[in-house]
Design a protein around this nucleic acid. Structure first.
Lengths: 204, 204
DNA sequence: TAGATTGTTAATCGATTAACAATC
DNA sequence: TAGATTGTTAATCGATTAACAATC
């Protein structure tokens, strides 16, 4: 069955909402919908893509649901991640505590700036991008965060892909090509701000 | 007419693609679609929400289109932005050069940590969140970037809204409430990584 | 004129929502 | 049992895409 990617984002949202609950052992689809600004039917539909987790007349057991959602999202384990590009954005992502607390460990960082290579940031040694392939292969790493310049992004992506990376979170403001079987997700901060200015412009 | 928000994101994508072009004075919807991994019909449809910018049989004049897209997105001017929360993510956003180059100027930064208040980062003085309202009002600022903790996010948002902020880019991993007339856009980095692990999990 | 490509309508596709029988 | 809420089907809604007359 084809599962819409918007469902996956909402599953994350449900999971986040469940985490914030205290002293709630059972929750209904309606309550979960209220917490996440979704629709109750949508909550039930999203969940039943993956199984039957609720009890008619009762609702969902929060602890069980939390565990199931973790499994669905693949966060019932930790993931090692490589970071490529240790400029100001990359450095920030390296310092960001939110990743580790969710089980995402940035284990290796790479840059091609000779001045940065060999230095240590947040306890992580910065390596030359030439070492990418050997590290990724030997450590069996699947995920990469890309915070390099627009210009070098595609070259680095090609390099990551041939090294065996299967999922990339890209912050470089450019449309990248990856082969099928590799998942690419883009976050362009300026594009997001433009969505806001579009709104401002049309409402002022 | 109701314009889908996905159209606006694509308009940003088209604009970004146009910026990267060299020595191209005219471009067809098909070429623009290829550059952005969209569909040519979609390109034309997105554009005609806002006007008739092309010439049948020819295509679109790139310079004219660039200007039109800037107007649509509201980036034919600069915008002042306040940043609330100067932790590791907030500091990074302050250091990020990509904003200024797109005409987004983080002019003021706020934090409620007494140790940070009064210090300067990237040439910006960190102020107490108590000063939020007076600064936002007197400087007529419409946009805010939120990089505070989950716990304080809603309080800060309420504060921003009563101060007159009309658009918020939120990085705190929590579902926030804003009144209609205020645009809220969420970026949850962990949620994005979870979309990747979902993919990895279902493909390994 | 012939060829190319737009702007726009109509057809298709997919996602969201409503409704309700099943069931706790 | 009566009330509540699930899982699921069917209806609705909206976005994407195909097709083509208009036009450069």
């Amino acid at each position: 069955m084809k599962i819409p990617s918007s469902s996956i984002s909402r599953i994350s949202l449900y999971y986040r909402a469940l985490l914030s609950l205290k002293d709630t052992s059972v929750i209904s689809s309606q309550e979960l919908a209220d917490l996440t600004e979704c629709n109750a039917a949508q909550v039930r539909k999203d969940l039943t893509y993956f199984g039957q987790f609720g009890r008619p007349g009762k609702g969902y057991d929060t602890e069980t649901l939390k565990l199931e959602l973790k499994k669905i999202l693949g966060i019932d384990r930790d993931w090692d991640v490589v970071l490529v590009g240790v400029g100001n954005l990359g450095s920030a992502l390296l310092a960001y505590k939110g990743f580790k607390s969710q089980g995402f460990n940035i284990k290796y960082a790479f840059d091609n700036n000779i001045k940065k290579i060999g230095k240590t940031k947040q306890g992580i040694k910065i390596r030359s991008t030439r070492e990418l392939k050997s590290i990724i292969r030997s450590r069996h790493i699947d995920m990469a965060i890309l915070a390099v310049s627009q210009e070098s992004a595609q070259t680095v992506v090609d390099n990551l892909v041939t090294s065996g990376i299967k999922a990339i979170l890209n912050f470089a403001p450019v449309t990248l090509k990856v082969p099928s079987g590799v998942e690419l997700l883009n976050i362009d901060l300026s594009m997001e701000l433009e969505r806001l200015t579009y709104f401002l412009r049309s409402n002022i």
